[in-house]
Design a protein around this nucleic acid. Structure first.
Length: 585
RNA sequence: GCGCCCGUAGCUCAGCUGGAUAGAGCACCGGCCUUCUAAGCCGGUGGUCGUGGGUUCGAGUCCCGCCGGGCGCGCCA
């Protein structure tokens, strides 16, 4: 509807007498908006206000001229010039009847568009280090990323979802040594656990699995493990201590043995993360390993590319990238003094590699604490000759859990208490996805566990689902009363849907494609949540005001066609959000 | 200190990229079940949009200063 109106308006502007406008109209600058007040019609535009100045005309006068040039059409019943120079459009009842028919004809596809024109988008999200289970913050990123992928897909982008596995760095060595120490404990050794190790309970089953795999092969006495190690925190440095411990492990069980421990831990963690996300309804097209990236030589190639462009220099034994030349606040190390490439080096290599796989747009969903690093990755891309604006980063703010008004403590140490899995188990997937998505991602989220769990009217999840279930209930009752629903007859009599509430429902329905487009282009799933709430609200109001199952078959079928369309649109929307659409509640 | 995000009803938040009288939910008060699910509907109470300037026909929205909150500023990942 909106698009059709914009086309009409553009035609009108082009049809104005020569010399009215200083320059030909820019299609992108023409916007038609839904009105807030029905008195102002269905849609309104401010073009006359915007063009009044350059055209050196009175806005209302210009608005009249534009209306005079509006091509004849079946969409607009009448128009008016209002206020300072707004043009209001009142649509025909037929325009809404046609939209209703479109919902039924398109079904699951209603609302979809080709706005993205098939542009290839790489959406990277979650990408949590496989050193522990996902926590509630990752859950928000998962829900956001998965829904954003659905939204972009729905408006015509070709989206690829990717999880980047940081399986190459020192943190993996720390996980491996933590696993090995628990394994030794389970083998009867008494050892202190390092301050900087992974202390979570999830390490115990990994250690147990290691034992079923290798038996006592990697068992070493505690005395050998602990001999001549530096002091751990608090007296000593926990970083130095853990590095020495890793080195000791390699000495005692061999580099190869250590790698095998690491493999067991990595595989187990990845399997856990994967299963967690799958159960949450979040899937990826590819799990991309940082190690595989390094093995493929991609990192070396990226560094080579920077070098030939003259963007690298040596200082203090390390290799630096001139990020400051590309807007970053300081230069960045890519190869450390000890010869190890930094995480940043593999990260820009990964982003370059995405571009080489011919993705036009790269979207990263990251935790808010990663914002400092957007500028440097973009700098890296630009230095390698890629457009900086091909990378878009959406930062997801933190999640705070509340239980009965009390904030649940979630320091880095205690974070393991509140995993995504625990949250899902407690409140259920639907409430979980819904609560994650109902607030803007760039707003910190207060997640109220009691509210999410409550089966009362305080819980907003049910409000939308209930509207869906109510329609199913109506259809069941129809059957029980011995009626049959004749959709064709209903659509043919859509003109009977002239009541105030019916108009409101038709209006809400027709807004779905616009809501979808808005949510996708603004990367704002919460906009869809708000739309669905409004749609459910107009439906519930209608439900309370009118009987659908009436004696007159024409009116009955028309009303049923209307509420069935509501159900369809709610289902389409909830599906994009990853929330189920129950038939009964 | 520098950078990013933010400040809207008692609470939690929307506000469609600058439009017409600032909106929801919860909470609170009052109504609606012999009628398709009351997890619902209707009405009411509640606002100097943190603050001071600026830009213009028009600012919650854009720019600058200040106040307050969150996060980030490693040869860690």
């Amino acid at each position: 509807m909106k698009q059709q109106l914009e086309q009409l308006l553009l035609a009108a502007l082009r049809g104005l007498p020569a010399g009215t406008l200083p320059e030909p109209p820019d299609p992108a600058a023409i916007s038609v908006e839904r009105t807030r007040d029905p008195k102002h019609g269905d849609f309104a535009t401010n073009v006359a206000l915007r063009l009044a100045k350059p055209a050196r005309r009175n806005p209302r006068e210009l608005a009249q001229a534009i209306l005079a040039a509006l091509p004849p059409n079946e969409l607009v019943a009448r128009t008016e010039v209002a206020g300072a120079g707004f043009i209001n459009f009142f649509l025909t009842a037929d325009a809404y009847s046609q939209e209703l028919a479109r919902v039924h004809a398109l079904g699951d596809r209603y609302g979809r568009s080709d706005l993205g024109k098939g542009q290839r988008v790489m959406l990277e999200f979650v990408s949590a280090n496989p050193t522990g289970p996902l926590h509630v913050g990752h859950g928000r990123q998962a829900a956001y990323g998965a829904t954003l992928a659905n939204l972009l897909n729905a408006v015509g982008y070709s989206v690829s979802r990717e999880y980047y596995i940081n399986d190459a760095g020192r943190q993996m060595d720390i996980l491996a040594v933590s696993t090995w120490l628990r394994y030794l404990e389970q083998g009867g050794e008494k050892l202190p656990f390092p301050a900087n190790g992974y202390r979570g309970d999830y390490v115990f089953p990994i250690a147990a699995q290691l034992r079923t795999k290798v038996g006592a092969e990697f068992h070493r006495p505690a005395t050998a493990v602990l001999a001549n190690l530096p002091e751990d925190a608090p007296a000593g440095d926990k970083e130095i201590y853990i590095d020495a411990l890793i080195e000791r492990a390699r000495e005692l069980i061999g580099t190869d043995g250590f790698r095998r421990v690491l493999e067991v831990a990595l595989e187990r963690m990845l399997a856990d993360i994967r299963e967690d996300l799958e159960q949450f309804g979040v899937s990826f097209d590819r799990w991309y390993s940082e190690r595989a990236l390094g093995d493929s030589g991609a990192i070396d190639r990226a560094l080579e590319r920077l070098k030939t462009q003259g963007r690298l220099y040596e200082k203090d034994g390390a290799t630096w990238f001139r990020a400051t030349q590309f807007g970053d606040e300081k230069d960045r190390v890519v190869v450390r003094e000890n010869g190890v490439k930094t995480y940043f080096a593999s990260d820009i290599a990964y982003h370059l590699e995405k571009r080489e796989r011919s993705f036009e747009r790269l979207i990263d969903v990251l935790g808010a604490d990663h914002h400092g690093y957007v500028a440097r990755v973009r700098a890296g891309l630009e230095a390698m000759g890629e457009p900086g604006d091909s990378l878009e980063v959406n930062l997801v703010q933190f999640v705070s859990l509340f239980r009965g008004g009390e904030k649940v403590p979630m320091g880095k140490r205690e974070a393991q208490f509140v995993t995504l899995r625990e949250l899902r188990d407690e409140v259920g997937n639907d409430a979980c996805r819904f609560f994650y998505l109902m607030r803007s991602h760039d707003q910190p989220l207060d997640f109220d566990l009691e509210l999410a769990k409550s089966r009362t009217n305080e819980n907003p999840v049910y409000y939308i689902q209930y509207a869906h279930a109510r329609v199913s209930s109506v259809m069941k009752m129809l059957d029980a009363r011995g009626f049959e629903f004749d959709r064709e007859e209903g659509l043919a009599n859509a003109a009977l849907l002239g009541g105030e509430h019916e108009q409101a429902v038709l209006n809400s329905l027709a807004r779905y494609p616009e809501a979808l487009e808005l949510a996708a282009t603004n990367r704002a799933p919460h906009a869809l949540v708000h739309y669905l709430r409004e749609l459910a609200n107009t439906f519930h109001t209608y439900y309370n005001a009118e009987q659908f199952i009436v004696a007159d078959p024409k009116l009955r079928n028309a009303r049923l066609a209307l509420v069935e369309a509501v159900q369809q649109v709610i289902r389409n929307g909830l599906t994009l959000l990853g929330v189920s659409s129950p038939e009964s509640m």
